[in-house]
């Protein structure tokens, strides 16, 4: 299908890091069923590094591919670096997404932020609230 790039199709067909982490250090879930997209990210943190990451996604092909790519991009990275991941970087790593599917990459970014925030909250780690803006579920370009 030429709707998506080969990269998107590859990550959709063979999603990386799909699954759950038992007793995760951080969990983030974004999206809602009414809109047809839910992403859940599980993190295992060791010494400020993302030692393991898994995802579960209910959504379209590009939502699954975005989650898969986003987990690849943050795996093994320090939390500080994972926080700099943008939806554009996810989309670019997938060789682009159709304009009306960009919200999938936004969800992936938000899910990772939510999981990191969960880890900070659970462990009483101070953070800059600017890193965790409140999101509605609108489309972004």
């Amino acid at each position: 299908m030429s709707l998506y790039s080969e990269k998107v199709m590859d990550h959709f067909r063979n999603p990386r890091n799909v699954g759950v982490i038992e007793n995760p250090d951080g969990v983030g879930e974004v999206g809602n069923m009414k809109c047809g997209d839910i992403m859940k990210i599980y993190l295992k943190i060791e010494d400020g590094i993302i030692a393991d990451v898994k995802f579960e996604t209910f959504g379209c092909g590009s939502a699954i591919a975005s989650s898969s790519m986003a987990t690849e991009l943050i795996k093994g990275k320090p939390l500080s670096e994972a926080l700099t991941l943008t939806n554009k970087a996810v989309a670019e790593a997938l060789d682009g997404l159709p304009a009306y599917k960009m919200h999938c990459s936004v969800l992936a970014e938000e899910a990772i932020r939510a999981a990191i925030k969960d880890y900070y909250d659970k462990n009483g780690i101070a953070y800059d609230s600017k890193d965790f803006p409140e999101h509605g579920h609108e489309e972004e370009a």
């Binding site: 199709m9 209910f58 959504g59 379209c60 092909g61 009306y100 599917k101």
Partner: peptide, 27 residues
Amino acid sequence: GIEGESLLLMLDDYGICASSGSACTSG
């Protein structure tokens, strides 16, 4: 528990051209 577009996309991969009531593909 699943979403229609990914269902169609994967079915196409498996050699079946189907459609969905989901308007997801139309944006």
